[in-house]
Amino acid sequence: MKTTGNTIFLTGGTSGIGLGLARRFRDLGNTVVISGRRKDLLDQLAADEGFGTVELDVADPASIAAAYESVTTRYPETNVLITMAGVMRGEDLLDPAHLETAEEAIEINLLGTIRSITKFLPFLLDKPEATIVTVSSGLAFTPLVVTPTYNATKAAVHSYSEALRAQLRGTNVQVMELVPPAVQTYLFEGKAPDPSWMPLEEYVDGTMQAFADQPDAHEVLFGVGFLRNSELENRYAETFATLNNH
């Protein structure tokens, strides 16, 4: 993926890693369109920071279809889709009420990703140097016990990304998977950022450098090797215990 000269649409992008990356891509001269459910926040970001904005709830297929029409009409040069929208909530699996949380995570993190890609893919197939960037997590590879369905959705996004890349081999569409570590954002609902997590600006700096240094990478990795490579390096049990004891 080239880092300049793109028109980029992010599902999500109004806060956290999404907004951090949106700002960096914008500053490199890309046209960046962000989305979210809060029109007031989108309007503020458009006015203050010059982003294109589109209202979008990735849990709603009709909203995805409407966002697609808006993006492709207003920004016909769109050649990059980043599926950033996601939720992360804790679950007590002994409490049947956790099912609602699990269903929401699957609807947003997994189905939202699949539906967004499915809607935009035919359009991207006609664009030169097109890229789809999916977003998984280090927890896809070493799970956090308190967020079981979040972990599972991100493991599914990883698997889906691998299959998508293989099926798109020979086309003009590149598939990259962004694999974040624990970053100091408010993604984990109900939990303030932990000082032990990576500072957001450090993560964005490292990730943008990774995009620049490895434009053909299948996975965009920065600061996540502890989780991503635990099984590959034969230390999964130790890493799982360390993560969850912490």
Score class of each variant (00 low, 15 high):
residue 227 L to R: 04
residue 44 Q to C: 08
residue 161 S to A: 12
residue 140 A to F: 11
residue 132 I to Q: 02
residue 157 V to L: 02
residue 67 A to I: 07
residue 104 E to P: 01
residue 244 N to T: 02
residue 116 S to W: 03
residue 223 G to M: 08
residue 5 G to C: 03
residue 115 R to I: 00
residue 55 E to A: 13
residue 40 D to T: 06
residue 166 A to L: 04
residue 195 P to Y: 14
residue 57 D to A: 06
residue 33 V to S: 12
residue 189 E to R: 05
residue 240 F to R: 09
residue 1 M to V: 15
residue 4 T to C: 04
residue 218 H to L: 14
residue 157 V to S: 01
residue 238 E to T: 05
residue 49 E to Y: 14
residue 113 T to M: 00
residue 220 V to E: 08
residue 22 A to C: 11
residue 192 A to M: 09
residue 215 P to F: 13
residue 119 K to I: 01
residue 46 A to T: 13
residue 100 E to C: 00
residue 100 E to Y: 00
residue 50 G to I: 10
residue 147 T to Q: 13
residue 16 G to R: 03
residue 221 L to E: 15
residue 72 T to D: 03
residue 122 P to N: 02
residue 17 I to M: 09
residue 171 T to Y: 03
residue 24 R to I: 02
residue 76 P to F: 15
residue 65 A to T: 05
residue 146 V to P: 02
residue 118 T to G: 00
residue 63 S to R: 08
residue 133 V to Q: 11
residue 131 T to H: 13
residue 218 H to E: 15
residue 90 G to V: 09
residue 230 S to I: 05
residue 16 G to F: 04
residue 149 T to P: 11
residue 55 E to Y: 05
residue 174 Q to Y: 12
residue 166 A to N: 05
residue 182 A to I: 04
residue 1 M to S: 15
residue 22 A to D: 11
residue 166 A to E: 05
residue 92 D to Q: 07
residue 57 D to V: 03
residue 239 T to S: 11
residue 244 N to V: 03
residue 214 Q to W: 15
residue 160 Y to W: 03
residue 81 L to M: 08
residue 189 E to H: 04
residue 34 I to V: 15
residue 212 A to K: 15
residue 216 D to K: 12
residue 108 I to N: 02
residue 222 F to M: 06
residue 9 F to K: 08
residue 108 I to Y: 01
residue 80 V to G: 06
residue 46 A to R: 14
residue 163 A to G: 10
residue 25 F to L: 07
residue 49 E to G: 12
residue 176 M to F: 05
residue 182 A to H: 06
residue 122 P to T: 01
residue 236 Y to G: 12
residue 179 V to N: 10
residue 168 L to Q: 05
residue 1 M to C: 14
residue 90 G to D: 10
residue 81 L to W: 05
residue 135 V to N: 06
residue 68 Y to K: 02
residue 75 Y to T: 09
residue 78 T to A: 09
residue 199 P to A: 14
residue 150 Y to S: 08
residue 19 L to F: 10
residue 111 L to M: 01
residue 93 L to M: 15
residue 178 L to F: 14
residue 157 V to M: 00
residue 245 N to I: 00
residue 206 G to I: 14
residue 7 T to W: 06
residue 106 I to T: 01
residue 93 L to F: 13
residue 42 L to Q: 07
residue 130 A to I: 11
residue 183 V to S: 08
residue 168 L to P: 03
residue 239 T to K: 13
residue 213 D to Y: 14
residue 79 N to H: 10
residue 11 T to D: 02
residue 197 W to N: 08
residue 115 R to S: 00
residue 233 E to P: 03
residue 135 V to S: 01
residue 205 D to Y: 09
residue 130 A to D: 10
residue 151 N to S: 12
residue 130 A to L: 11
residue 114 I to L: 00
residue 48 D to G: 12
residue 81 L to G: 06
residue 222 F to R: 07
residue 198 M to Y: 04
residue 89 R to A: 06
residue 201 E to T: 14
residue 202 E to K: 14
residue 223 G to P: 08
residue 27 D to Y: 04
residue 178 L to E: 07
residue 200 L to E: 08
residue 26 R to L: 09
residue 8 I to A: 14
residue 230 S to P: 08
residue 86 G to M: 00
residue 53 T to R: 12
residue 218 H to G: 15
residue 88 M to N: 09
residue 153 T to Y: 07
residue 13 G to K: 04
residue 198 M to L: 10
residue 207 T to R: 13
residue 119 K to G: 02
residue 206 G to Q: 14
residue 110 L to C: 00
residue 49 E to F: 15
residue 211 F to Y: 15
residue 228 R to I: 04
residue 64 I to R: 04
residue 157 V to W: 00
residue 29 G to F: 02
residue 111 L to D: 00
residue 236 Y to P: 10
